[in-house]
Amino acid sequence: MEKTYNAFSLFLCYSKITIKSWFQYKVDACMRSLAVFFREATGVIVIYLTMLTFDEINGWNTNELLLLFSFVYVTYGILIVFFTGLRDFEFLVNTGQFDRFLLRPRGALFQVIASNSDWFAAIGHGALGICLFIFSANNVQIVWNFWNIIYCISSIIGGVFIQAAIFLVVASLSFFFIKTGSIRELLYWNTRKFANYPISIFPKFVKIFMTYIIPFAFVNYFPATYLLDKDSGEFLGKTFCYITPVIGIVMFGAAYLFWNYSLKRYKSTGN
C-alpha cells in the first residue's frame, strides 16, 4: 500500500515538473497548442472541403466522418498526457540519457512514463477531439442513455491502451535499432492516417491489417459504427464493437512483456 502511495506521489511530483518545464515560456506554449490544433484540424478541413463536391464516402456523410475523427483525437489527447515518454523514447536511447534511468531505484518504464507528457499535443488534440465529438454527435442525433455513455468511456480507455501498446512496442524496438522514427511513422502514424476514414473503403488486406495486426479499427471504426448503428461490413457482426477495452488491455500486457524482454538486451550508445 505504501509502495503504491509512494509511486503515486512520485508521479505527481514528476507531473508538476513537466508542466512547469513545458509552460516555461507562456506565449510560446499557447502558440504551440494552437499550432497542434491547426495541424490536426487539417484533416478535418480537407474532409470538409472534399465533401463540398461529394455527398458521401461509402455511405458515410460529413458528420459521421467527423465522429470517426473525434475518437482518434480524444484518445490521442489522453494518451499523450501519460505516454509521451514512450513516444519520444528514441531520444533517450540515442543520447544515452536512458542509462541514468536504469541507475535509479525505480522501474525504468515507470520513470519513462512519469517523466514526460506533451501538454501542447494534449491540449491541441483533446480540444479538437471534444469539439468534433460534441458537434458531430449533436448533428447525427445519437440518443444518449446510461449504456451509451458507459460504452463511450470504456471504448475511449480501450483506444488509449491500444495506442499505448503500439508506442511501447516501438519504444522497445529502440533497443535493437537505434533510430526508430520511421518505424514509428510506419506502424503508428501511417496506420492512424488510415483510421481517419471508414476502413470499409480500403482493399481487403488493409481491413485485415487494421483489425488483426495493428488493431487501430478498434480505436474509432468499431465504436463509431456501433454509435451510428451502421453495418460494420464483412466483419464478425456486432461482437467486434464491444471488445475494444479487452483488446486494449491484452495488447498492452503483451507489449509490456516485449519491453521486459528487450530491456535485457539493451546496450548503451554511450554519450
Binding site: F177, G181, S182, I183, L186, W189, N190, Y197
Partner: peptide, 27 residues
C-alpha cells in the same frame, strides 16, 4: 547512414499516396 530509416520513409510516402488514392476511388 541510416538505411532502415530511409527504407521506411519511402514506404511512408507510398502509404500516403495509396490512402489518398483509395479515398478518392471510394468518392
Amino acid at each position: 547512414i541510416y538505411r532502415v530509416d530511409f527504407l521506411f520513409s519511402i514506404i511512408g510516402t507510398c502509404v500516403n499516396i495509396f490512402i489518398y488514392c483509395a479515398i478518392w476511388k471510394a468518392l
